[in-house]
Design a protein around this nucleic acid. Structure first.
Lengths: 238, 238
DNA sequence: GTCTATAATGAGATAGAC
DNA sequence: GTCTATCTCATTATAGAC
């Protein structure tokens, strides 16, 4: 909390500038797509300073993740706990669980501090890699409890669902949330500007009923699944 | 179609081996995460041969995309056209449109030829980058018509939906499909082995009713959205 | 088509002066 | 903490012999 003595425009501390630049560039270019030199240039420091403060590149990357993962995870968890405390029966309804999960990330994505958006883009990107990104272990550690608690809440909210349906459906909700906070611009283009990536109010208002109805539909018995699969799979003309 | 004269184990042509290795490695490591040397080693050729056959790295990447994008796009389109031809009214029901879209990719993902899986992983990964991957323009060209045709079919199948809801919901279905064919292994771990990434029959049997019910729910009028947004957004304790 | 050789650049990391 | 200087290695790409 010490303040600079001069009247010169107070520059952010070096470590912070490096972290912010890393976060932004890693989110845009991926771990391998960004060099320490890119980061140093963006942060307006010499390259050696990056290594001095954070060691090897992998450690810098883990610092970027570790700076926000715990707070993100507790945010999402607290949203669920708030629902559990305010629900009359102690068991929040399905749509409240969905709402808590989605809004927990959406609220961070639209904060004026763009850092949160970059962080969320970064983990969305990391979660799409089929192979071990340097952040895989720390991410699992941070978000494992979140997944477990939400699965338990979903289980309580929809006892008619089978476990496989529940896990898969929750995975799909995660996929959608990560995709939206990634703000790739694809939706804006596909809709010719009708939908805007940053309109999280609209996304939330649509996603909650969409996911709720989708999950409920999995609980209602449906044809033996052989029918749905056979009709088009057999058409192998080409 | 010429066959080798000797009895030695027929090796695939060089260009093909390079393309297959590139596809596999790019899918796993991303464009920047894989070097031409990695590819040459995997394909068991000298590095110079890669440049000789495909020019600079970006051109190689575009060759990898271009080799399958047209066929993938027509597969997905043909699935829709087949539904349109067999539907009594000429307008396939919502769930048939969803089914056509998902099965069009799922069928390719589980072919014995792993190349298709790698290709699908690669485009799923590229679609998550917030910034221009070298494949962005060719991908838009190949899949633009697919998106337009499916949006039109969804519009015809659910006239009660607003355009914004339709575009967003279809974008979510795309997100889920891409996520599933990416086969990251995350779902397997979250479900502790209960769900398996490669079980596309199960995925399809769940995704069609999930998405159908989700989209239908967007057509039913719902509270002014101010309610859903206000209840939890205002809790900003931290 | 395939090879060796090499050019030209950029990468991550460290040593040591200030 | 910050800088300059440098080391070592890997990268893409090309030239030219076979």
């Amino acid at each position: 909390m010490k303040q600079s003595a001069s009247r010169a425009p107070a520059r952010k501390p070096t470590r912070l500038r490096i972290l912010d630049s890393s976060e932004r560039l890693f989110a845009a270019g991926g771990y391998e797509g960004v060099s320490l030199r890119d980061i140093a240039r963006d942060a307006q420091v010499k390259v050696a300073l990056v290594s001095y403060h954070f060691g090897p590149k992998q450690d810098l990357f883990r610092h970027v993740i570790g700076r926000r993962s715990a707070e993100h995870a507790s945010r999402v968890l607290e949203a669920l706990e708030h629902e559990e405390q305010t629900a009359p029966t102690g068991v929040p309804a399905l749509e409240r669980v969905i709402h808590a999960f989605c809004s927990g990330s959406f609220e961070l994505a639209r904060l004026p501090d763009a850092g949160w958006k970059h962080y969320l883009q970064l983990i969305a990107r990391s979660a799409m890699s089929p192979v071990n990104t340097p952040a895989l272990k720390p991410l699992n550690a941070a978000y494992g409890p979140v997944v477990r608690r939400y699965c338990a809440a979903l289980r309580a909210a929809s006892p008619e669902l089978r476990d496989e349906d529940l896990y898969t459906a929750f995975y799909w909700v995660q996929s959608i949330v990560q995709r939206m906070v990634a703000e790739t611009g694809i939706l804006d283009r596909q809709s010719r500007g009708l939908c805007r990536s940053g309109d999280y109010d609209a996304h939330l208002a649509r996603l909650v009923p969409f996911a709720t109805a989708g999950i409920r539909a999995l609980g209602t018995p449906r044809p033996t699944r052989a029918k749905a699969a056979s009709s088009a799979v057999r058409r192998r003309a080409r």
